[in-house]
Amino acid sequence: MGLLGFLVLVLGFSSSSYGAISQLNSRLIASISRKGPYIGIVVPNSFELSPLLQSPTFVLDHKFPYFDFAGRRFRIGKLENQKVIIVMTGLSMLNAGISTQLLLTLFNIKGVIHYGIAGNANPELQIGDVTIPQYWAHTGLWNWQRFEDGPDDELALESSGDYTRSIGYLNFSSYNNNTKSSKSVSNLLNNVWYQPEETFPVNSTPEVRQHAFWVQVDNTYFEIAKKLEDIKLNGCVNTTCLPRSPIVTRVRRGVSANVFVDNRAYREFLNSKFNATSIDMESAAVALVCLQQRTPFIAIRALSDLAGGGSTLSNEAAIFASLASHNAVEVLKRFISLIV
């Protein structure tokens, strides 16, 4: 019995039961999945989704164009002649993780492609460039150290194996202004130590945790991404053009957290500490769910802003988010056309 069949058996067939998969829905899901396997496409927000839905190479399934479940709409069709199911997650790690888990639980999915826009922490790249990181990490899971404890002091619950100092920390006093008035100010915020996620892979013993900080994308997908570097991308929004034509590039690392980073100091810290390029709010959640479900994945993120380091007036995403979204979709379409 598959996972879906087990869920139906346990939850029952009544559509009025909370959390249940009704008979009608279970039949629809089975009918959709029989046409698979599909590539799952996970996208955060509507402005990133719209260019994909408007693409002439995306064709909805004539019989099952979409399936609504648990507040999500799963669009079924073909993109570049590949069978796909597309789901919009909404903002944040929580929404991205839930949507990805539902996608993989309900349908016959052979791989996941996540795409969207991101902030840029890499001074060698510019707005409009499309990045494909090899590794993703969630940098929003912290152990916040008590006042006056330092790097050599054990963290709370570290001895039990719940937390670690192995990844490193951010010391807030490193970013205090060195003025006469601030020299005597205590660093009450002290340090925050970055933590790995607890993971529970589907093929491991239940409730026996593993840990993951850097999650690697699928090797085959990452190799395919080499073939994307010749794509010609748009570099202008109306009459506002970028200094050079945007490029597609594979990079080493991207990071995610429930934080919109519009701060130059933290952007530079993420780049120097973790060698991070792309900064977003969803990709690591998709990566972690796919890691646990043993499903191949890759994330494509177009740079929409400099994460606090560009314009002094406003974040650049207000101007370039639409350009970045379209560039991400162009790369997605080429990538999916290359999957065998």
Rank of each mutant, 00 (worst) to 15 (best):
M1V: 07
L4I: 12
G5W: 03
L7Q: 10
F13E: 15
S14I: 01
S15E: 13
S15N: 06
S15H: 12
A20V: 03
S22P: 06
S26W: 02
R27M: 01
A30I: 00
S31I: 00
S31M: 01
R34F: 00
P37V: 02
Y38L: 02
I41M: 07
V43F: 09
V43H: 06
F47S: 14
L49Q: 10
F58L: 15
K63V: 03
F64Y: 13
F64T: 00
P65Q: 01
R73W: 02
K83I: 01
I85P: 00
G90H: 11
L94H: 12
A96K: 05
I98S: 03
T100Q: 08
L102T: 01
L103F: 08
L106D: 01
N108E: 08
I109S: 01
I109F: 04
I113Y: 02
I117L: 07
A118C: 15
G119E: 09
N120D: 12
P123L: 10
E124T: 12
I132G: 01
P133F: 08
P133S: 14
N143M: 11
N143E: 11
Q145W: 13
Q145I: 07
R146C: 06
D149P: 00
E154G: 07
A156R: 14
G161I: 07
D162R: 06
T164L: 10
T164S: 15
I167W: 04
Y169A: 12
F172Q: 03
Y175P: 04
N176Y: 15
N177R: 15
N177L: 15
N178M: 10
S181Q: 14
S182H: 11
S182Q: 13
S182W: 13
L189E: 13
N191F: 13
N191Q: 14
W193K: 05
Y194I: 12
Q195M: 09
E197V: 01
F200P: 05
F200Y: 15
P201D: 13
S204Y: 12
W214E: 14
N219K: 12
N219I: 09
Y221P: 08
E223I: 13
K227H: 07
N234Y: 07
N238Y: 07
L242T: 11
P243R: 11
S245C: 04
I247W: 00
V251C: 14
A257K: 05
F260S: 02
F260K: 02
Y266V: 09
E268Q: 14
S272Y: 04
N275P: 04
T277H: 09
D280L: 14
M281G: 11
V286R: 09
L288F: 08
C290F: 01
I300Q: 01
R301H: 04
R301T: 02
A307W: 03
G310Q: 12
S311H: 10
T312D: 10
T312W: 04
L313V: 08
N315H: 09
E316Q: 15
I319F: 14
I319C: 11
F320I: 12
S322E: 15
S325E: 06
F335V: 00
S337C: 06
V340T: 03
